[in-house]
């Protein structure tokens, strides 16, 4: 069953919508949630939360790409759960480590026009920035900051050393900061 047919089930308020979503994408969603949360139980609950949220949002939404629509929603639900679970220990919590790293990308204060509170503009800039990168650093950046994977996991997946991944991320963060400054974003 394709996305259009599954969305039609949601619009028809058929419970098969959830069954079909689970059948087509359940394994993928669990993998994404597990990657962010690092816990099977939390991942399972978050995917269930996702289906409930999808039921409540479709309709009125009619997404063209269900995987993308629900994938983004799932990431946010996972991050929300991670925040709730947050411990006060650096390194023991991947969200804290990731936020610490991304603080480096915040452009220095300057006379400018666009505020980082302008989330649409910032998202568009992020897309342009990522598309300007060579494939490998782009993929590493996304695995770290979209999928929230640990550096060690990324290194293992790409058969690279952790040192190489860390240095690649550091350089990309520096480039992102420069890019945002050039685009006129301010704190």
């Amino acid at each position: 069953m394709n996305d259009e047919e599954i969305v039609a089930l949601f619009w028809g308020r058929s419970e098969r919508a959830i069954e079909e979503t689970e059948r087509v994408y359940g394994r993928y969603f669990r993998s994404v949630a597990r990657g962010i949360l690092g816990d099977d139980g939390d991942a399972e609950e978050t995917v269930n939360d996702l289906y409930l949220k999808a039921w409540n949002q479709i309709p009125p939404e009619r997404p063209n790409c269900l995987k993308a629509f629900l994938g983004r929603m799932l990431r946010q639900l996972s991050l929300n759960r991670l925040e709730r679970n947050m411990a006060q220990k650096r390194g023991a919590n991947r969200l804290t480590a990731v936020l610490d790293e991304l603080e480096e990308c915040v452009p220095a204060a300057a006379e400018g026009s666009l505020s980082m509170a302008d989330s649409v503009a910032l998202r568009d800039a992020m897309n342009r920035f990522l598309r300007s990168l060579p494939a490998e650093p782009r993929r590493v950046f996304i695995r770290r900051y979209w999928h929230m994977k640990a550096v060690s996991d990324i290194a293992a997946e790409l058969s690279a050393s952790e040192s190489k991944i860390k240095s690649m991320l550091m350089r990309t963060r520096g480039k992102l900061k420069t890019y945002l400054e050039q685009e006129g974003f301010i704190v």
Partner: peptide, 22 residues
Amino acid sequence: MNGKRILDAVGGIDYDLIEDAE
């Protein structure tokens, strides 16, 4: 927390980039 805004911005990137990274 501005790192959070950047994290949120990453969350909104085009899905073909995410699939490429996967």
